[in-house]
Nucleic acid binder design. Structure first.
Length: 553
RNA sequence: GCGCCUGUAGCUCAACAGGAUAGAGCAACGGCCUUCUAAGCCGUAGGCUGUGGGUUCGAGUCCCACCAGGCACACCA
């Protein structure tokens, strides 16, 4: 159990005791929030509970604090507490506990920081899921980094995580893609044909068509259009999917499952979900189409499930898909990561889940704001169909993977993001990620030197670590578990980037002030333990973020 | 027009479900390498947290109104 939690309990018990003895009025307790004071002078943990209780108890906060204090029985990790105006109770941890944590980190290695929050619960994280009709663009990169990091974090927090990419391999856009590609192919073969009105206009389609010409020649010319369309569509899809997979690999992202939309129609999920909706009588036929009456379920309007031409909409597929996640595969929680342009879709899907008898709270959708791309001062507009896009590949050819991940990760999903390609390229060398990795490499270098000098330190005495830089460093190390906790609970992996930077700052400062390998044999051994623990924590944090922890730079 | 997100230092962003003096990086300025990596350290400067009300012992954070930007409101996905 985290120390934070133990403090929470000891406060709760103290209030209950005080209330039992009649020293405090019997009011209901609010949630007890334990935080880290900004100023170290106030100790390691702080709680403003007396302030929160002042109103309901009609007593001055300082009086409440003193009453609580009378009955506090401190957990072993805490050395002392203090009451501070206007009504805080501050706690300071035992040095022995901090020293023990260094040993704990050394013995646990990179499993340090892992938690049992999820208790093995099965959770799915679905992300990217871009249509295989064109290359990934920069925005998809953001979703990919967000999703893969979140999956790592949840896994560390004790969930059984599966990652998934939903492949839209059927439907209107795929038909459109086929026709666009076929037109480009015919053009490559010297035919004078026009592209479909709303077709995919990007130059990559020309390159793709030429690529197919190289490989297949005029083979597709000599077959009926119907057949050629299907054939070329399949070939094109596979090639683009291959590209998408390469892009994701460059970004260090992979998936446990690639889920094909088409299979929803082949394996019955679609029919089952639709039948269930009909049974709940929230499906009607009107205006020559099949609708779900979402308006009677709390939405603004009804939505079409099956078009006039008999083909299901994306929404219908999505209902079947999520039905599959919960009803067939039994995930207890599902996290979807979508671009903000799908924002409006969230309540509809949740409403449909409720109609299927699935608790909508089991589905959590994280929408990330769109990436605005700049080249210098100029804004680049993104549109796959018009083709004027900056691809993820283009970005990755210019900006290194770890740097790219760090930039995407260091903004909260809610905030719109400016990604200046020029800047990212130019500044790649002083991106914060290198600052963090440099700290790791520096430690590796110290440990190499210790090895060269044949210094054994497993008998090192960590209680020799008493100076400010040393204790500050240990205090930073022990924040890893709660950083994982908050990132996993809030589903906000950007906390990791800030923790990583803090860790590096504290280490670099320690490094400047404390020589590790010195003539003081005993101190050398204890400091070697400390820096090795630091290396573990840095490495773990970098790995959670999907970045490398280099031994040298 | 309805809804969602955002507005914090010159720029890019944080602020741990309301807390103590709002923090980093970059850019600017001034110092620090005969010792384990200077991709580093130490310091200076930079703010009416978009505006106006409200709730609270306490508001960047919650509520209302307004201003500005983004997204979305399809028988596209």
């Amino acid at each position: 159990m985290l120390v934070k939690q133990k403090i929470r309990f000891c406060l709760r018990d103290a209030v209950a005791t005080a209330q039992g003895k009649g020293d405090l009025p019997p009011v209901e307790l609010p949630e007890i929030v334990i935080e880290h004071p900004q100023d170290a002078i106030h100790g390691d943990f702080a709680c403003g509970l007396p302030l929160k209780l002042a109103r309901s108890m009609s007593l001055p906060p300082m009086n409440i604090a003193h009453e609580i204090a009378k009955y506090l029985s401190l957990p072993a990790e805490i050395a002392r507490f203090a009451i501070a105006k206007p009504g805080f109770i501050n706690f300071t941890v035992q040095n022995t506990w901090l020293w023990n944590q260094v040993e704990t980190i050394l013995s646990e290695g990179e499993s340090y920081g892992n938690l049992d929050l999820g208790k093995g619960m099965r959770i799915q994280v679905e992300f990217v899921s871009a249509n295989p009709t064109g290359p990934l663009h920069v925005g998809h990169g953001r979703g990919a980094v967000l999703g893969s990091t979140l999956a790592n974090v949840l896994s560390a927090a004790g969930y059984q995580v599966k990652t998934e990419y939903y492949l839209n391999d059927i439907g209107t856009q795929i038909d459109n893609f086929r026709q666009s590609l076929y037109a480009r192919y015919l053009q490559s073969q010297g035919k004078n044909v026009a592209l479909p009105e709303e077709g995919y206009m990007g130059d990559y389609m020309i390159a793709l068509a030429e690529d197919i010409c190289q490989e297949y020649g005029d083979k597709l010319l000599n077959m009926p259009e119907e057949k050629a369309l299907l054939e070329i569509g399949q070939i094109g899809l596979e090639k683009i999917l291959e590209n998408i997979k390469e892009d994701l690999e460059l970004l260090g992202v992979d998936f446990d499952v690639w889920f094909s939309e088409k299979t929803l129609y082949q394996e019955g999920q679609y029919n089952e979900a639709m039948a269930m909706l009909r049974n709940k009588s929230c499906v009607v036929e009107k205006e020559n189409a099949v609708w779900i009456e979402t308006s009677t379920l709390g939405e603004d309007k009804d939505n079409v499930l099956v078009r006039g031409d008999g083909s299901p909409t994306y929404f219908a597929s999505d209902i079947a898909y999520h039905y599959d996640k919960f009803a067939r595969r039994g995930f207890q929680r599902v996290i979807d990561i979508w671009g903000a342009d799908h924002q409006g879709h969230v309540p509809r899907v949740k409403t449909a889940m409720a109609a299927l008898g699935i608790d909508p709270a089991q589905l959590e959708v994280i929408t990330y704001q769109l990436v605005t791309l700049r080249r210098g001062g100029e804004i680049v507009r993104l549109s796959k169909r018009s083709g004027d896009i900056v691809t993820l590949r283009e970005l990755l050819e210019e900006v290194e993977r770890d740097a790219c991940r760090f930039i995407f990760l260091s903004r909260s999903a809610d905030s719109q993001m400016d990604f200046d390609v020029e800047l990212a390229k130019r500044k790649s060398a002083d991106n914060p990620v290198y600052y963090v990795q440099y700290a790791h490499a520096r430690i590796a270098s110290i440990l190499r030197l210790a090895e060269q000098k044949n210094i054994q330190y497993n008998q090192g005495d960590v209680s020799l670590l008493t100076s400010d830089p040393e204790m500050t460093l240990i205090r930073s190390l022990v924040l890893l578990p709660e950083t994982v906790e908050i990132a996993a609970t809030a589903l906000q992996p950007h906390y990791l980037t800030y923790y990583a930077q803090d860790m590096a700052t504290v280490f670099h400062s320690f490094y400047k002030q404390c020589r590790v390998i010195s003539n003081d044999r005993a101190l050398t051994q204890s400091r070697l333990k400390l820096v090795e623990a630091t290396k573990i924590v840095l490495s773990k944090t970098l790995h959670l973020m999907g970045m490398s922890a280099p031994e040298e730079m």
